[in-house]
Amino acid sequence: MTAPPNDCLARNEWICGAYLSTRRQILLDAVVQHLQLTALSVLVGLVIALPLAVLARRWGWAAGPVLAVTTILYTIPSLAMFSLLLPLYGLSATLVVAGLVLYSLTLLVRNILAGLRAVPEETRQAARGLGYGPVRLLLTVELPLAVPAAMAGLRIATVSAVSLVTVGAIVGFGGLGNLIYAGMNTYFKAQVLTASVLCVLIAVAADLLLLAVQWLITPWTRAGRARAAPRRRRARVRAAGAKAGRA
């Protein structure tokens, strides 16, 4: 008779090298699904949020209702949001993406609108004086100046989406959340810990990636950084305080 195996999997340890090597394909599939769900929902959110924010900026009266609706959407807990969409999309990946789009929409509209509103009136008038029409003004002056605020929103939206995808496990499309859910039902410690750590790593990597993208596309913010540093730090502290988390 062969003796029962006595490796870390059999002992159900939290950290287990054998788990990583034997379940490599499962982990890879879950990570890919996690990345796809996150990227798709943030991109769709961005595509919808941009025109909404521009319209809300053009017509002042639209800003109030747009912000009110997005605030209400953001208040709804994620599990309830996915459940409310169930009659529309059934048990599908679309349901998870739709729910996440609604959350990222909220963050992006608010941040892009704040960025557009922060463009100095003198800058706008200077561009008009140079003969810029409304479309050219928007595309070449206002939107580029709103990029830092928009990117701040995009980073929060992406990091939140990475963490919220896990709740999609309730409909079977949760990326690493599926592994956490299955691991919970079988008390599989190594699987739960590995999937959780991977989630956090994806969130951190996505945040750093977007930070690098922002650094590349806004070269003008780097000029004169030394002089503006103290003021900017205070502004960042204030912005961090105003942001809300989401579960």
């Binding site: 990475v162 963490s163 919220l164 896990t166 959340g177 956490i180 989630c199 988390g245």
Partner: peptide, 19 residues
């Protein structure tokens, strides 16, 4: 600490605590 809190999935923490 707020940024860290956002990156950690609530669901993962709940399950980790459960185990």
């Amino acid at each position: 600490i707020s940024n860290v809190g956002r990156a950690v999935p609530t669901f993962a923490v709940l399950v980790l605590l459960l185990l």
